[in-house]
């Protein structure tokens, strides 16, 4: 195991090229998302979110963590302008969810929203037409590396491949904010590793990735910040490493403690 990784590293070490500077961003002007007193009530008494306050800076990969029914998807849908809040609001880059934010937010919904009969090349056209920040070259390159042909249709693909294609489309936008709702649910470990590497490899230090999941073990090493959502309330927002240091346990172990039934 060790030798294998060492070899890989040596191989990389001999490659020419420049190191990218990746300063940890924490200046206040780097704020990207602000959620203020956000409340969503369905019908008369189903409270999905209550008085949620959050700020999320640029340049982070943030995990929105909570069990089923904790309000993750409601929060994500409000951020994408698919639901309107009962009270309070969300600002992304200083704008309320709407056409301006849709141009800079790249969203991977929990459930497939694409027409399964479409071919990959049609999906590329579709994304190119809809989003000015879509890079067809970047998407094409990633699809080629997976040996996915432009002529393939979504419906002929395995679930794992379909998830990869959707993620590639979403990550091929030059967005400020990537919102991924359960990006790794129900895929095999190899597909999961591919998805994680694609997320790391495609976002830049000026953008933020907000991803929701209840499968924390699989993804916690990638997160630099975590938000715990419990019954519609934010119960924790912390740097993942600070949490490990303070609690002496993994994010997953601490999550299980907070959400013990």
């Amino acid at each position: 195991m060790y030798e294998e990784v060492n070899d890989q590293i040596n191989e990389y070490a001999n490659e020419p090229g420049q190191n990218q500077v990746y300063e940890y961003p924490n200046e206040p002007e780097r704020e990207l998302v602000r959620v203020n007193d956000l409340t969503k009530v369905y019908g008369k008494r189903t409270v999905a979110l209550e008085g949620v306050n959050l700020t999320i800076p640029r340049g982070r990969i943030v995990g929105l963590l909570g069990p089923n029914g904790s309000g993750k998807t409601t929060l994500i849908k409000i951020m994408n302008g698919l639901l309107s809040p009962t009270r309070g609001n969300v600002w992304i880059n200083g704008s309320l969810p709407g056409p301006a934010t849709k141009a800079t937010v790249s969203y991977l919904p929990e459930r497939n929203a694409l027409d399964l009969s479409m071919r990959v090349e049609e999906l590329l056209d579709f994304f190119g037409d809809f989003y000015a920040d879509f890079s067809r070259e970047r998407a094409g390159e990633m699809l080629r590396s997976l040996n996915i042909s432009p002529k393939d249709r979504l419906k002929s693909m395995s679930k794992g491949t379909r998830e990869k294609v959707q993620l590639i489309l979403v990550m091929s936008r030059e967005a400020d904010l990537y919102i991924l709702d359960e990006p790794i649910a129900g895929v095999d470990p190899a597909a999961r590793d591919y998805i994680i590497r694609t997320i790391i490899g495609n976002y830049n230090s000026n953008a933020t990735v907000l991803l929701s999941t209840h499968l924390i073990t699989d993804i916690e090493n990638v997160l630099d910040e975590v938000i715990f959502l419990k019954e519609g309330h934010v119960v924790l927002q912390s740097s993942a490493d600070a949490l490990r240091e303070q609690q002496g346990k993994s994010v997953d172990a601490y999550f299980r403690e907070v959400f013990a039934c």
């Binding site: 990784v5 040596n10 001999n14 490659e15 990218q20 990746y22 940890y24 790391i200 990638v222």
Partner: peptide, 28 residues
């Protein structure tokens, strides 16, 4: 000696992708 004196270290992004960790964590 797996990394020799004077050897180049891969970029933060390359290393982060190899390790499966956040680039900010690798930067730190």
């Amino acid at each position: 000696g797996a990394y020799g004196s004077g050897d180049r270290i891969p970029s933060v992004r390359e290393l982060a992708a190899q390790a499966g960790v956040n680039p900010n964590t690798m930067q730190r």
